[in-house]
Amino acid sequence: MKKIEQKIDEAFKNTFLLPREKAVTNFLVDVLSSKYKFREDDKKIEVISLYYYASSPLSFLFALPNYEYYSPDKTIQIAELHLKEHSLEDYSSTDVQELCKRVLEENNIDYSAYLDEDGHLDYAHYWENQFGLESDFLMSCWRNAKEKTQSKILGFLESSETGAGLYDLNNGFDVPFDVDIDEYLQSHGFMIEKES
């Protein structure tokens, strides 16, 4: 089953991720190069939060100063990316099911045991890589944008719903739930002043 997982991974990347790479990277370049004016004052933003919509990570992204360090009251703009505005339609679990069915059929694999009573494919039995691929994709786009801009801004990837985890975009690390961002950054040698 490992080989079929890899084939689904590749199909998923080629079908859903790669077509979105340019739009996401360009958005992050704009965020890192200060195209968006987050605040009225000239406070230098050193830490950004990039949020994804939990139920569909690549349909909507937004970035803003990290509220661990910057007062939310002083934020005047949020950077938003709606991929539909770039002629990229959202993909649903049905689209992912169809992609999985196609790969299984191309490889002569009988998936009838994974169909529910309505004929829907439950791919969780053999492929659970979707979110990992999406978050790795976002981190890769962030690194590409950082390389293009040479920005020193630090970034964290967060879900629009609490409890989905926190990722260090610069290093690709999963930040443990019991560690706050300030403690985490200090442990990596970053001392960033918090706004009072």
Rank of each mutant, 00 (worst) to 15 (best):
P57G: 12
E68P: 01
K74N: 12
L58S: 05
E106V: 07
K101H: 01
E98M: 09
D174C: 10
P176N: 05
A63I: 05
E68Q: 09
F16Y: 12
K7L: 15
F156V: 15
A63P: 01
F12H: 03
K43L: 11
I45M: 09
I48N: 02
D95P: 04
E161Y: 08
L88G: 05
L157K: 12
K2S: 09
K44L: 13
E85H: 12
N26Y: 06
I109V: 14
I4Q: 15
M139N: 03
W127Y: 15
K3D: 13
E158I: 05
S196Q: 15
K7A: 13
L121P: 01
E40F: 14
S112Q: 12
S135A: 02
Y126N: 04
S59I: 02
I109R: 07
F190M: 06
E147I: 07
D118E: 09
A113T: 11
L61R: 04
K35G: 03
D41W: 03
Y53W: 12
E105I: 10
I45S: 13
L50N: 06
T15F: 00
L83W: 00
I153Q: 09
R20H: 01
D9C: 02
N107D: 03
S187M: 09
T94L: 10
Y126H: 11
L121W: 01
K44W: 04
L50Q: 03
I153K: 15
S34V: 01
G172C: 02
P65F: 01
E183H: 07
S59M: 06
L115W: 07
T162F: 10
V29H: 00
K35R: 13
Y70N: 09
R102W: 00
S140K: 12
C141W: 07
E195I: 05
K37C: 07
I4S: 12
L154R: 10
